[in-house]
Structures are given as structure tokens and as C-alpha cells.
Simulated assay, not measured.
Amino acid sequence: MKDTTDTATEAAADATKAAADATSSASPSTSASSSTSADDCEAATDDVSGVDNKVAVADDPWYLSASSLTLKSADYQGIVTVKTADGKTKKVLKYVISGGTDIGDLHQTVKDKTIGKTYHVQAASGSTSTIRGGTTTMYTESISGNLFGLIPITFDVDNPPPLNIPLIYFTNVKVVQAAQFGGTLHVPGMHLYTTDGTG
């Protein structure tokens, strides 16, 4: 893992200047739906007795699979503790995104273990879903894929990002998300459906 992380660090450092240029060109767009304001999220803290979120996150995470994921003007704020609706706490990675998010071929799932169903939100094939309209706070359990389209890597609380860079780009990405607040998500050709099982 160290070799992979070192390679990622070098690639990230090389990309920092280009990333800064790229993020400045992001433009806002209209939206179909909105989520809780990022203003409800406190600053990151290393105090294990405190929690970072004012609004409780769901007991179980949701999942994102995508052909690509671009986080613009991203600020990785470290490992924080969040509180779930059932009163438990868990550690997650905190990202604050102020320049918008692009998601290629979005496929989001939520697993309902109580009835053995999985709920799907899927964008049209070949489309790019967007999050715009303000700052987005992501509480991420894990994110894996090809960093900068090249380096297979997984970031989680045991293997956090080695650098804080303004542009994060993954291909073939999978995200386990504890919660996401702020911004407005637009999903082209959105298709909603349910399947049996949670595997």
C-alpha cells in the first residue's frame, strides 16, 4: 500500500497546478432537487468525544458506482466522527466541495435490510450528473477507483488521502457514503427501480 500511496502522492503533487486552473472554470447550473445545507455541518475536529455533524446521518451508508467522479475545489478536512440516527458514532473522511461535482454514469443504491430490497437511482447511459449551487459536504466511508484515471487506490479511515488537492478525479469509482449535505443534484434521464436482495 505504501508504494501505491507514494505514487498517488507524486501524481497528486504534479496535478495540483493544473487542478487549480481547472477548478476556476466550473460554472453553476440549474437543479432538480436539493439537500440539507452544508451550513449545518461543523468544522472538522480531532476530539473523539465530539461529533462533526449537527444533522444525524443514516444508520446505514448509501453506495455510488460511476465511470468517473470529479470533485472541484475540494478540501479534504481529515478523519472526523459522525453520529447516526440510532445514536451510534463512526469515523469517516470529510470532504468539502465548493466548485461542484461531476459524476459519469451515476448509479446510486440504498440497501434496506429490513425488507431485503435495494433501491436504485440510475442516470442515462453516457450522461454526466452534476452537483451545483453551493458547498457540498461529503462524509465518506471509502472511495476507491483509479485516481487521475491511472492509479488504483482506496481511501478510507485506515488509508486516508496523503495530500489535500483542489481537484480529485477518479475513474471506475465506487463510493461508500455515510452522508452528503448541500448542493443540488441533477441526474439526466433518471431511472428509479427496486431489486430483491441487498448483496
Rank of each mutant, 00 (worst) to 15 (best):
T140K: 05
V121H: 12
G133K: 10
T137C: 12
I151P: 03
S144A: 14
G134D: 04
L150E: 15
P152M: 02
S127Y: 01
S142E: 11
R132E: 14
P160K: 02
T130R: 13
I153A: 04
D158G: 13
L150F: 05
T136D: 06
T118Q: 01
T140H: 05
N159L: 00
S125W: 05
Y139H: 13
I151T: 14
Q122S: 14
I151L: 05
T136P: 00
H120P: 12
I153P: 00
G133I: 00
S142L: 07
Q122W: 05
D156W: 00
P160W: 00
T128W: 06
P152R: 03
F148H: 14
T154D: 06
G133S: 10
V157R: 11
V121Q: 14
T118A: 01
T135N: 15
Y139L: 13
R132L: 09
T140G: 04
S127F: 01
Y139V: 10
N159H: 02
T118G: 00
N164F: 02
P160H: 03
N146M: 08
T118C: 01
G149F: 09
G133Y: 07
P162D: 03
I143D: 05
L150N: 14
F155R: 04
P162R: 05
G149T: 12
Q122N: 12
T135D: 15
P161I: 11
D156E: 02
F155I: 07
T137L: 09
N159K: 05
T137H: 08
T140C: 12
F148M: 11
D158F: 02
N146W: 00
A124F: 08
T154F: 06
N159T: 11
L150A: 15
E141A: 10
D156V: 00
P152W: 02
I151H: 01
P161M: 07
V157K: 13
T136I: 06
L150K: 15
D158K: 14
G145Q: 06
G134C: 05
S142K: 03
A124I: 09
F155T: 03
P162H: 00
G149R: 12
S127R: 02
T140E: 10
T135K: 15
T130A: 10
S129N: 09
S144H: 11
L163M: 12
L147S: 07
T118K: 01
P161R: 07
E141R: 05
G133R: 08
T137Y: 12
I151V: 03
Y119Q: 03
S144C: 08
A124N: 11
F155L: 04
G134N: 08
N146P: 03
S144K: 15
P162K: 03
H120N: 15
I143K: 05
I153C: 01
I131L: 13
S144W: 09
T140D: 10
D156R: 00
G149E: 14
A124L: 12
F155Q: 04
S125C: 10
A124S: 13
G133V: 08
S142T: 07
G149Q: 12
T137W: 06
R132N: 14
V157Q: 11
T118D: 00
